[in-house]
Design a protein around this nucleic acid. Structure first.
Lengths: 226, 226
DNA sequence: TAAATATTGTTAAAAAAATAACATATCCTA
DNA sequence: TAGGATATGTTATTTTTTTAACAATATTTA
């Protein structure tokens, strides 16, 4: 493969996890091959789009057969970097943080959760999913002694930026942030913002559409402008 | 507003929660107006795009001033349906379910979490965030006696489709699903799929890009095809 | 082995989305 | 009150993304 992959288009990247999930399921069936048409039925994307997406990365299919499920699954894992081992830590062991500590998704994606930190003395020392919650004051010390590839940020809104600054200062280059508003980091640090309530918003918008269509919306919110 | 809004383009819809978050923050500052240029700095979208997005819904700005923060915030709330009261229930009180039971995001978006269900007898009766966990066997009964607008689905993968079927049969028209693979529902039911590990995938892909560029990828995964 | 069938990978066309440009309107200052 | 500055809303242009079409090729069937 000679193509420069430095920047996979976001739109393609956003579909990779969907392909991954379906191939994972298919792998457990007794089928060996899957066609773009079948994948289209499963994913909701058009077969044409699927073939195009895959061809961006290489030539994986077999004419008149389709794609070898296991092989394609492996390819996508490699493209997504799942075959590469990464260590990740979690900062903030509140309700969401704890749920993420029990998340089963790390291993198959090449992550190992190696430490959990919190500020709350009542939480420090507790064990969640075999990891003892450490004091956030040990963060820098821990990071100087352990190579860590990424951090999950689930601290309260008010502490998010400060904590991110500490992570960056200690050398962390990738952050999965659950802060509600973007945190600022240097250009060489990756941040994946996760608006936890985005799905709730989308659902609300969609539920609301019939209502919005019926009424002359302006009246509702004449904001006494000007 | 005469424009038919029946289907807000997904791409615009996906930016609404971002505008919402920033306006919420701005509202707490001492500023009254914000320009598309300032919003661009905050959100990372271009000012042109922001003006275009907003103009899709109406004319909210004020020449040479910008947008009235509070007014725009209200408008976006109305577009997203946050001003409309909705009742939502949660099915599956595992780690993720519990975290979502404590989620602070419902109220401001017009949702009220009114019940939590689980199958596990050890959980039934426990109280999380002031709600006593009910037995899943009471689901149909509850739904026949209480008007509910949406359901959060956080049951284990294996139970997801069956549970969704029950919800649909009981009249639920909107589901926020955390199942890893799409659940099948009739056309008149809204489903918002939430791949909880999508952010983790994206982070992994991005971390992986420099590595993928360096190597001739094919070699890595010669799947002995054919 | 030849014809019919299936399905890819790619090219061409269409549609959608983003950006740039600008006319217009309002505000501010002198 | 005239002129410069500001920032919207919209139109034009460019770019990106998706869909459609199809040639190429492998498989299956007769």
């Amino acid at each position: 493969m000679t193509k420069d992959l430095y920047s996979i288009p976001d739109i393609i990247m956003s579909r990779l996890p969907v392909y991954y999930q379906h191939l994972k399921k298919l792998k457990e069936s007794n089928k060996t091959y899957v066609s773009s048409e079948e994948l289209a039925k499963l994913t909701g994307f058009s077969s044409s789009l699927i073939r195009k997406d895959l061809s961006y990365f290489g030539t994986f299919g077999r004419k008149s057969y389709g794609y070898d499920i296991f092989c394609l699954f492996q390819q996508i894992r490699i493209i997504m970097g799942f075959n590469y081992n990464k260590k990740i830590i979690l900062i903030g062991a509140g309700h969401l943080g704890q749920a993420l500590a029990y998340n089963k998704g790390y291993i198959e994606r090449g992550y190992k959760l190696t430490a959990v930190f919190d500020k709350n003395p009542k939480l420090i020392g507790l064990v969640i999913n075999d990891l003892e919650i450490k004091s956030i004051s040990d963060l820098e010390n821990y990071l100087s002694e352990n190579k860590v590839d990424a951090a999950i940020l689930t601290v309260p809104e008010a502490a998010a930026q400060k904590t991110a600054d500490r992570l960056v200062a200690a050398g962390i280059k990738a952050i999965w942030s659950f802060a509600e508003v973007p945190i600022k980091v240097p250009a060489d640090v990756l941040v994946e913002e996760q608006l936890i309530n985005e799905g709730l918003c989308k659902l609300s918008v969609k539920m609301n559409q019939p209502r919005i269509n019926k009424s002359e919306v302006e009246e509702d919110f004449d904001c006494e402008q000007k």
